[in-house]
Design a protein around this nucleic acid. Structure first.
Lengths: 247, 247
DNA sequence: CGACTGCTTGATGCCCGTCAATATCCGTGG
DNA sequence: CCACGGATATTGACGGGCATCAAGCAGTCG
């Protein structure tokens, strides 16, 4: 695992571990008491910066740690022998990366930064050790994994039985909700990913994504300018999800 | 597989908990020592029979336990407001059901038996308790969850970037491999699910599934008779996966 | 500014969904 | 035992949604 460089950890860095982090409510420490969060601090010492287009890990890398996104955002990508690939998720601050590696002690996908980002490195063996001692941490970690499974199921639903515009509407609504949870505007945001990456995630070609954006704009649902999105009629988007393309 | 009757649990039944179970190698006890498996026995006391078309749990049910399939098979199903649904997986013996419920203490999908089946009930709070004490159990459980995530990713790949025949070939190869792991023939087996259920899982309509089966048969790759499948040219099926439908 | 990457938009074609008819299997009851 | 009905599967005809191919536009960075 290329670690970029062993960036020396300063005391100031350590002080801003979980107990001081403003992402507590979204991240691994959810539901933990203060004493327990301080135990997490000891575990989550190291940070790692990942520049845009750099990989946090790649498929095949040996698995040693999971990562919490502290700032920035990532995509995860599974590869196929013949060169095809598929984006399996976009992760933003407070979300956990790397859970796929536990299964075989090797990562099974690539994780790439969509912008200059920073993650907290959580050595997995230490996390297991601590979660044997701290019941609430154990349970919270299990919830994080379970939530990932539930999310994957809803993506399967999306890919398996929605049409193009429904998929894109669901995608926008999901982004909007996640931005809201982070204190950003629900209606106006910047896409960090390209049309091609959105398309890969949604099982569509980039032209189809682009066309759907334009259609939404024509219908007065959103306003699009390249990567800048403004949601004008959020209920309209939600309605789009309800019907099979009918009414 | 209907086992006759005797719903009351006899001593003999209890004796056939994990330590005596021939699914050890496929199920939760993988990698555990004898002493540890016997600890699991205490936990996995109860069995539950589920008849064909009955539900093991439904979306919305409060989550209390996960389940290991002991005999028979299941499908899991996510529902959508407007009536659409999507099969998210088929589970056979040794595989774990119910992990989706950890996230919110409610199940988020339905689990339905495809044939008369039996599961081992594993109360989740007890599992967490024991896995705080038994490191190898803890790790094995994490692997089970991670494996589910990895599996979901490969389904996303399938749904997002494969064409109909590739999806069905991948499905057949996956089934074949799982039957092999259970000591059954890799080449000849009985489908427990309908064309419609296969189609839902693969993001296709049942007619498309049926046509793809027929095409495979015409090409000499398999022989199909309703639910009975015989794989004739397994390498041919594998090749189908490699190309985008080309060569 | 020019090369490049990413986005938009149009024209065309094909894969798969839809609709429909028929065939086959299976359980039930006469 | 066979007849019957419902669920499941197969097969055909047709159309639509999205992919593909292609051209032009917009923003970015050395």
């Amino acid at each position: 695992m290329p670690r970029g460089a062993t960036i020396p950890i300063t005391v100031a860095d350590l002080k801003t571990a979980c107990s001081q982090c403003n992402l507590q409510e979204l991240c691994l420490p959810v539901g933990l008491g203060n004493a327990e969060i301080e135990q997490l601090d000891a575990l989550v010492g190291a940070r790692r910066r990942v520049k845009r287009h750099q990989h946090l890990y790649r498929a095949g890398d040996t698995f040693e740690a999971i990562y919490a996104v502290r700032s920035g955002s990532f995509k995860t990508n599974v590869l196929f022998e013949d060169g095809r690939d598929q984006v399996t998720g976009f992760q933003m601050s407070g979300e956990i990366l790397g859970l796929d590696g536990i299964s075989t002690d090797q990562h099974t996908c690539d994780a790439e930064a969509l912008e200059d980002s920073e993650v907290c490195v959580i050595p997995f063996s230490k996390l297991e050790e601590l979660s044997r001692a701290v019941e609430s941490l154990q349970h919270q970690f299990h919830k994080v994994m379970s939530r990932e499974i539930v999310r994957d199921h809803s993506v399967m639903m999306l890919l398996g039985s929605m049409r193009a515009e429904e998929r894109l509407a669901a995608f926008l609504l999901n982004l909007s909700q996640r931005f809201t949870a982070r204190g950003f505007s629900a209606a106006e945001f910047h896409l960090r990913m390209t049309r091609d990456e959105i398309g890969s995630y949604l099982g569509l070609k980039l032209e189809t994504v682009s066309r759907a954006f334009s259609r939404f704009q024509d219908q007065g649902l959103i306003s699009v300018q390249q990567k800048h999105i403004r949601i004008i009629d959020i209920d309209g988007l939600k309605q789009l999800l309800g019907n099979h393309g009918g009414i």
